[in-house]
Amino acid sequence: MMTLSSLHAVSQAQAPALPRRAGLGLKPEHFIEVLDTSPDIGFFEVHAENYMVAGGPFHHYLGLIREQYPLSLHGVGLSIGGEGPLCRAHLARLATLIERYQPHSFSEHLAWSSHGPVFLNDLLPLAYDSTTLQRVCEHVDQVQSALKRPMLLENPSTYLQFQRSTLDETDFISEIIRRTGCGLLLDVNNVYVSCINHQRDPQSYVDALPLHAVGEIHLAGFAEDTDSLGDRLLIDDHGSPIDNAVWQLYERVLERVGPMATLIERDNQVPAFNALLAEAQHAEWHLSQVSP
């Protein structure tokens, strides 16, 4: 198991942190435009699982773009919260990818997505109790040991809660970070979505997190529906522009953490590159309003 002191030594040897600027999720339909126009953007982020092959056009273009921009790798398939062991083959492919591109950051979700041999292609919620806490910490330790670097763990968007939970979500996340030395990927949209769904105050949730551990921020859009009781239900669909309420919460977050690498996520109904760039520029404006 990797200790906090060895993690600190490893982190010092790694590439520098992401620039405290706005970045964009890199989509294949934008590869050529990015290379042709060299937009003024802080960094790009890709989903690791889309690049877990030896070659092909995705790697060709990502290699060229990586020569010009810092890179963040974001995992969606490790199933860190799963009851079973981590997939060693998946972890090995991830380690190979990180060695190839030397990203400034690697992050994953506080969620589970597999059960035995079945992969569910979703990010599913956890019960927050001591048993789950121990398992997640062991999995985070395993990932950090395999990758020889600290990772960032993303707070989830959730739509239900478990009666067996004995810890608040913020306490659960805080304890993982304390035990493992990992960092926090603070997804502001996830905070807003979950808090509205569970009738909590988003700012109080943020205040309860270990904000000293934040290494990256995510911003995204949500869809709105109603549940079976007619109550407001927000869905983290990454398919809409960022809502004004999320921008306002982001502003409050920056007041607490200072300028921080901020990713604009758009995975569904992806618009033209200029529309994403405009949202990134809006985030840059927010970043410019706070002191380091």
Rank of each mutant, 00 (worst) to 15 (best):
P150Y: 05
V193E: 08
A95M: 01
G42M: 05
L24H: 12
L73C: 13
V193L: 05
F106P: 13
E108Y: 04
S240Y: 13
Y159E: 04
D40A: 14
I32T: 15
E169Q: 02
E49S: 10
T158E: 15
A283V: 10
D171H: 01
F58I: 11
R200M: 15
V193C: 08
T96E: 06
G42S: 06
R164G: 07
D168S: 10
A275I: 03
S228D: 11
H238P: 09
Y61A: 04
A9Q: 14
Q68D: 07
M1Y: 15
E45Q: 04
T262I: 06
A127M: 00
P292E: 12
P202S: 11
H218T: 00
H115Q: 14
V10L: 15
Y205M: 15
R21N: 11
N121W: 01
D267F: 06
V136G: 11
P28Y: 10
L167H: 06
T180Q: 06
H8C: 14
A13M: 07
Q102Y: 00
D236K: 01
A220G: 03
I217W: 12
F162I: 03
F162H: 09
I264G: 12
P156I: 10
T170H: 03
H104Q: 07
F44T: 09
L184D: 05
V191P: 14
C195M: 10
P19N: 08
G183L: 10
V76S: 01
L211Y: 04
G221E: 03
R149V: 02
P39C: 13
L147A: 02
A95N: 03
H109Q: 05
A22D: 13
H104T: 00
V214C: 14
G81N: 01
L185F: 07
D122R: 12
D36V: 04
T170D: 02
D122W: 10
V246P: 14
S240H: 15
R21I: 08
E154N: 06
L276A: 13
E83C: 04
A22G: 13
H115I: 09
L62T: 06
A127H: 00
L94A: 02
R179G: 09
L211W: 03
D187N: 13
Y51E: 05
A261L: 05
D207W: 04
A48F: 01
G75W: 01
R232P: 04
P271L: 05
R100V: 02
E175C: 03
P28N: 09
S105R: 14
R178S: 14
H90Y: 07
Q144C: 15
R178W: 14
P259M: 02
D171Q: 02
S11W: 10
Q12V: 09
E67G: 06
L209S: 11
M52E: 10
W285D: 13
T170F: 11
I176D: 00
I176L: 00
V246Y: 11
R66L: 05
Q14C: 15
H74V: 03
T37H: 03
N268L: 09
P210D: 14
S79Y: 05
G116H: 07
L35G: 12
E255V: 07
